[in-house]
């Protein structure tokens, strides 16, 4: 039972014997790099880069479900990528536009 399931996964049209598995797997590298940058100070984040990451993540989440073979590995990496991009943008916007407003009541 378990062996046949593993076999099915191994021989899947988007399985590890195909490029459809390895391309998204390397895309995870970019998402993980972005997670590593969560500790980076927001001044060092780049708007264009994070916007590119967010847009790619969202659009590709849909793309991964309309291609053949349908690619859940690609889907999950793009959801992760979109989420990390949104979080980084949130940090950057919070720092650039709202941190001053928070400091004011503390000074009074």
């Amino acid at each position: 039972m378990a062996a046949s399931k593993i076999q099915a996964l191994w021989n899947h049209p988007a399985g590890p014997k195909t490029i459809h598995f390895w391309a998204p797997t390397f895309k995870w590298g970019i998402s993980i790099a972005n997670i590593a940058d969560f500790s980076k100070p927001p001044e060092k984040l780049s708007y264009p880069q994070q916007i590119a990451v967010t847009c790619t993540g969202i659009i590709w989440s849909r793309y991964s479900t309309v291609i053949t073979p349908k690619n859940w590995n690609l889907f999950s990496v793009n959801v992760a990528m979109g989420a990390t991009g949104i979080y980084q943008l949130y940090r950057k916007i919070q720092h650039d536009y709202f941190s001053e407003a928070q400091e004011l009541p503390a000074n009074e």
């Binding site: 780049s46 264009p48 880069q49 916007i51 590119a52 990451v53 847009c55 790619t56 659009i59 590709w60 849909r62 793309y63 309309v66 291609i67």
Partner: peptide
């Protein structure tokens, strides 16, 4: 009219970021 077009368009962001 399809995502097959807009997916790669979004990926050009990486190329532009690299060029910058």
């Amino acid at each position: 009219k399809t995502t097959h077009f807009w997916g790669p368009i979004a990926n050009w962001g990486f190329v532009i970021a690299g060029l910058v």
